[in-house]
Nucleic acid binder design. Sequence first.
DNA 1: TTGAAAGCGGTACCAG
DNA 2: CTGGTACCGCTTTCAA
Lengths: 355, 355
Amino acid sequence: MTTQRPRLQRATIKDVARAANVSVSTVSNALNGRTDAMAPETLRRVQEAITALNYRPSSAARALVTKRVATIGLILAEIETPLFIQALHRVEPIARSAGYNVLLSIARSVEDEREALNLLLDKQVEGIIFLSNSGYVNDEHLQQLLRARLPVVLVNRANAHAGFDQINWDNTGGVVSAVDYLVRLGHQRIAFLHGPVKRRSSEERLSGYRLALTRHGIPYREHYVRSGDFTAPRDHWWQSSLELVRLPDRPTAIIAADDIVAATVMKTAQSVGLRVPHDMSVIGIDDQPFCVDLNPALTTIRLPVTEAGGRAVEVLLGRIAGTRQTRDHILLPCPLILRDSCGAPPVQQTLVEGA
Amino acid sequence: MTTQRPRLQRATIKDVARAANVSVSTVSNALNGRTDAMAPETLRRVQEAITALNYRPSSAARALVTKRVATIGLILAEIETPLFIQALHRVEPIARSAGYNVLLSIARSVEDEREALNLLLDKQVEGIIFLSNSGYVNDEHLQQLLRARLPVVLVNRANAHAGFDQINWDNTGGVVSAVDYLVRLGHQRIAFLHGPVKRRSSEERLSGYRLALTRHGIPYREHYVRSGDFTAPRDHWWQSSLELVRLPDRPTAIIAADDIVAATVMKTAQSVGLRVPHDMSVIGIDDQPFCVDLNPALTTIRLPVTEAGGRAVEVLLGRIAGTRQTRDHILLPCPLILRDSCGAPPVQQTLVEGA
DNA sequence: TTGAAAGCGGTACCAG
DNA sequence: CTGGTACCGCTTTCAA
């Protein structure tokens, strides 16, 4: 009376062997493509048994002996912009087509990241991708990965880790090209609303801003630069942009911390009667899908997050396979995507000043 | 001369046992909390050995014998809106806090889903969540899951599957409350730009639209309803909204297929000189983060995707644990989020008609 | 060309 | 309270 247990047992390799009237080794050979020196008849019987029993090799058992789990881990920092997680759309398909599964963890804090890491390590993943914001955090737990020689790729990670492959994007260059573009349009009074300080991306962008200004012989003006936190209430950005817009020497162009902030800036400008881009040019950062649907469509600096994700898997898989020897440090460009939110600065303003 | 192999072996339970001078069973007991009847001294020695050797139990070995891998699978359809994938922010943390890892797959098509499913099955995940769009697709591969009695939760899945737990949201109710709201504001000429046909969500929304109109005694007018595809070029929606806006009996309010389309509608309206909401009210669907930053901030029907994800894990984990017996079929409400894109219909228009 | 048997690293039962 | 040991399902020599 063991009918108590309705849980159907999965067929094992033994069952298949028995059904096909061969030994387990033969089944194993068939399974793993070592089929050259195998009698076609035998192979056929094995395959029939497999389908008949709906056999599916136990990956746990296989992993136990081969020490390969065909899984990589992805630790994704919980990030303000919905952009980062989109990288999964690239990461998983590439991994899967190489026969790898993706174990995902969301890290909401450093402690959380540590915990997530431990779970991945328990699962003995063959490699790990970290996709983070570029905040400076305590990274010590990464050292054990170095010691364990586990393949790791760091994407957009602030701290320098000589031992790991890294993929970043060129924040500085992105802002430089934005400023260049604005100057080319005739702007001189360019404001910059930048993101959280204590973050490498912010520092790089700010330095890009200063660098470009210097190159164009435009003085850096403190009051044209404001910073904020993405997690801060939206009022903050609204307030900052309002102040900017009300300045006696109002900037004719504003580069915003991200697309959302740019949308806020446009809204603020419009609320005080300024037209974008006629009276005020605006540039965002991120290139989120909605940019094109804003009114006007937003010119923005694209962050190549998805591409970075794709490159990350490729590098990681290469390292797992042992193909790749040297440390990679890839820097992806941040192209300026031209749309409708920028134009020449208003001329009458200059006239007013001259008066 | 085995220095050839620098790959450092992980410590095994045997190593720990040896180091602590106890048997493997004792270590295993200590590991699994069967520590009540254990001499404190022994326990201490075991723990010391564990930390000293940096021991980490092999989950593969453990899975092999316990048949539990502490992993669930999530098959996410590649969906137009970036909203769905956000559910991961809720799913993974909940799963992890219950001791489960999440294996993620992106399904770009039905065949892809089938492939992804097979990989998850190979990994012997303990349960699977499907987060899909509500397109009608060939679902036969789900039947094997039913037969295998694998815990499965279907989120936003079109076809009816009596055997599975399901979580959906109330598309019909969402649109009904949007129409109700518009009617309450005084609108009678309400247009509906709806999403891809052959999708349950579209059907439900359309029926909500018709239902609400009927209730309010407003006739259904064909030319107020247009459909489109989210993957279609944005021109399509632009074209549709332009036609709507140019109608001699122009609608005073438009419910759009999603927030992006709503943004396009607002843009189109503004481009022909209409003010939103003064001359034209607009309602979106989704409630994406940028809604609040549009000009004007978009009133929209919220899709509770993230909450659905959270509920899905809870249901799944409950079923895995055997806690849950009856099939769940949860329907989440789609609340109307009031912002600034709706107002009373323009009065002069009525006057013109009367003239 | 196929089969037998020894593990992989744990768990859990049964002795002692 | 602790130890010995038979598996779990598969891979992989090594023989036949």
